[in-house]
Design a binder for these strands. Structure first.
Length: 498
DNA sequence: CGTGGTTAGCTTAAGCTAACCACGGTGCGTTAAT
């Protein structure tokens, strides 16, 4: 069966979008593939379609449980029942049943953490795995080194389950991040499919405030005049709540906040309200956004800047998926520099911590239990603690281990990581403050040149804010949905209520 | 930097103020205690 036939019969599309055919052909040839496609361009087809042609199961590593659930649900709606996910939120007996029947499935969605467990990787190692997919592959580089170290072990796990061909998918990765992913996943001469990260319908605007109060005033003024829906990003949970209150006091009623400290149910509810247009504005930390496929987001405002330019691109990339004019507004005040600096140092142990550690353990007769206990008594941040556990595990896996060498390398590595992270913050700040074209310089960060400049480019090139303002007389937007879509929404909600 | 929580120290001893300090963001999984 040809891939065009499967595309129309299984997925209901007449033709491939940019990049999809080439990527699928390389995957079917059994090559390792690295693909960078802009958000919303149909990345999942690149492994879902080959699943019908390859012998064995396709294992997809995904960063969020909600993302995995969404994908499974969507495929089931399309009529494909041979897909599943496997995670801690599922009842024990359901998980066991899936394990028993795993050979019957075509696609399995799983987190990097669960994939490490012997129950799952053991079962997979005894069957044929056709393809190993890493979705949102930039997470390997962005989260793997400290926050979710299981991302660093994906290469190993892939070997354990028979080293099938690997497909790494992402929407944003600088050349450095690409190389990091290739190295950590152990990709073998991968076929590279890199497409432009430019989003011509997103215009850039920045405002530099003299004081924090002024920044808040500017924010409120913009939100009052801009056409929604929109997202406001900040770097602090508390600030999301402060901004929400301030906006409500100033006439922007349909506003809510969202951050990782909230109850799961509240997060889900707020997210749904935003997607179904019950909210105009959402004030959030970087917890919000991954997997949000709302097509008509009109503005993204940064009240604080993210700590690197890929995160920034990810965040603004959530606007204008429908192709309509959208605005990315950056608000800056010099006090903002403090937060990202604090965050990067808090996620790693200091040299002093490492010295403390080496005093506590017996250097000549290394004992695993004592090592682990000593980490706990260092009183590190959760992320720094995770980092230490990962490196201790690595130490005990070495046959000829030497504590001093390990320690020196660790300290060196920490210094290198902090230096890199500072450099990335510095680059982000340079972008904010530079007097050059915002679009050209952001493309430059991805080693790309601007080909055509859109009419509304950025405030440096000259920008009219008129297209982004809300019109006084609000005509109700016609909502045209196919009956399939309507049904899907109804079923979705039924599932949620039960 | 800004903020919120804690504590020392003052005082017609229970509640106030001021000084000080810690902290700021992303999620998976498992387990212990009811």
């Amino acid at each position: 069966m040809s891939i065009d036939l499967i595309l129309s019969e299984r997925f209901g599309f007449r033709s491939f979008r940019q990049g999809q055919r080439e990527i699928i052909e390389d995957v079917l040839d059994g090559n390792d593939v690295f693909a960078m496609l802009p958000t919303g361009s149909g990345k999942s087809i690149c492994y879902q379609l080959p699943a019908y042609l390859l012998e064995g199961i396709v294992v997809v590593v995904s960063p969020l449980i909600s993302l995995m659930e969404d994908q499974v649900e969507q495929l089931r709606r399309q009529g494909e029942k041979r897909v599943c996910t496997f995670h801690s939120g599922m009842p024990y007996h359901v998980r066991m049943k899936i394990l028993r029947d795993l050979t019957r499935y075509k696609i399995l969605y799983v987190s990097p953490e669960t994939l490490q467990t012997d129950t799952l990787s053991g079962t997979l190692s005894r069957m044929k795995v056709a393809l190993f997919v890493v979705d949102e592959a930039h997470c390997i580089s962005q989260w793997g080194h400290e926050f979710r170290t299981d991302y660093l072990k994906l290469g190993e796990v892939c070997n354990r389950i028979g080293r099938p061909p690997i497909l790494a998918l992402t929407a944003t990765a600088t050349v450095n991040v690409r190389n990091d992913i290739i190295k950590l996943l152990n990709l073998d001469r991968p076929e590279m499919h890199i497409y432009s990260v430019d989003r011509p319908n997103i215009a850039f605007q920045s405002e530099i405030a003299e004081t924090t109060n002024e920044k808040m005033d500017i924010l409120i003024r913009y939100v009052q005049t801009l056409k929604g829906p929109g997202i406001i990003y900040t770097s602090s949970r508390m600030v999301t709540e402060t901004i929400t209150e301030a906006l409500k006091r100033n006439g922007v009623e349909k506003t809510a906040y969202y951050h990782g400290g909230m109850e799961n149910d509240d997060r889900l509810l707020t997210q749904k309200q935003f997607i179904y247009d019950e909210l105009d504005v959402i004030c959030c930390t970087n917890a919000f956004g991954m997997g949000i496929n709302k097509p008509d987001i009109r503005f993204i405002i940064h009240y604080h800047f993210p700590s690197n330019i890929e995160s920034y691109l990810q965040e603004i990339g959530r606007a204008g998926r429908d192709g309509e004019e959208s605005l990315a507004l950056m608000l800056y005040h010099e006090d903002d520099d403090f937060i990202p600096e604090r965050l990067i140092t808090a996620e790693l142990p200091t040299k002093k911590d490492i010295n403390h550690f080496s005093v506590m353990v017996d250097v000549d007769k290394p004992d695993r239990t004592l090592f682990e206990q000593s980490i706990t008594s260092l009183n590190l941040s959760e992320t720094a603690e995770r980092f230490m556990h990962f490196h201790v595990e690595k130490f005990f896996r070495e046959e000829e281990r030497d504590f001093q060498t390990w320690k020196n390398q660790l300290v060196e590595f920490i210094e290198k990581r902090i230096k890199e992270k500072r450099e990335r913050i510095r680059y982000m700040k340079k972008w904010i403050l530079s007097e050059e074209c915002k679009r050209e310089s952001i493309l430059g960060a991805f080693s790309e040149k601007l080909v055509t400049r859109p009419l509304n480019c950025c405030h440096v090139c000259g920008l009219s804010l008129e297209p982004y303002k809300s019109s006084k007389e609000k005509s109700p937007r016609p909502v045209i949905k196919s009956w399939e879509e309507e049904l899907a929404i109804i079923f979705h909600q039924v599932n949620v209520d039960v």
